[in-house]
């Protein structure tokens, strides 16, 4: 096999200490507006659910406080988790890849190397338009589970990020 020549080179063991380390990277935090946007979204959701609950309340004789207390507790819990968890969310761009991390209870971190990016786009929902926030989505050939989505960027920052990622990933084509 003529591959063996290159193989030998690559078979040199890499010292783990010399690997670029993800842990050492400073992650950029997201716009604080994004936290307010998420809280607004949750608020709307709970408000709607509370509306449904109120309608249901008329059909039973259960005391109102029994009805609303667990709901309010859940609401508060979600808010607390969102606020604490927000600090964990962040993205990082290194020379050769882009990463995103998130999750207080289920932490996850994904890195997509630029040479594996299929395409990159910006998306903005109705709430996002209200807060002037957008997200950058990075697609790979690895299926939907492997795609990376960086939410909570201002529209301008998102555009710059998209252009930057597109430029870097185009170099590999």
């Amino acid at each position: 096999m003529d591959l063996s020549k290159t193989m030998l080179l690559e078979n040199l063991d890499i010292n783990p200490e010399e690997l670029p380390q993800m842990e050492a990277v400073d992650f950029e935090s997201l716009e604080s507006d994004y936290l307010y946007m998420r809280l607004t979204a949750w608020g709307l959701f709970f408000l709607m659910a509370a509306g449904v609950l109120t309608v249901l309340l008329f059909t039973t004789d259960v005391a109102a406080w029994m009805y609303y207390t667990p709901w309010a507790a859940l609401f508060a819990l979600v808010f607390i988790f969102e606020i604490i968890g927000f600090k964990i969310k962040g993205y990082a761009i290194r020379q050769k890849d882009v990463s995103y991390k998130s999750g207080l209870i289920w932490f996850h971190m994904t890195s997509v190397p630029f040479n594996r990016i299929q395409h990159c786009e910006i998306s903005q929902g109705p709430l996002g338009r209200l807060f002037n926030l957008a997200s950058v989505k990075v697609y790979t050939a690895g299926g939907s589970g492997s795609d990376l989505s960086i939410s909570g960027l201002t529209k301008e920052r998102a555009q710059r990020l998209r252009d930057f990622i597109t430029k870097l990933s185009a170099e590999y084509e």
Partner: peptide, 29 residues
């Protein structure tokens, strides 16, 4: 042949200082 990699850690894993790694390829995970 790998596309990208993902690291996950649930609170149960955090207690024990563990994590899971997922490997994505164009033909499966």
């Amino acid at each position: 042949k790998l596309q990208n990699v993902k690291l996950t850690q649930s609170i149960f894993q955090k207690q024990r200082n563990l994590a899971s790694v997922t490997f994505y390829t164009a033909a499966g995970v």
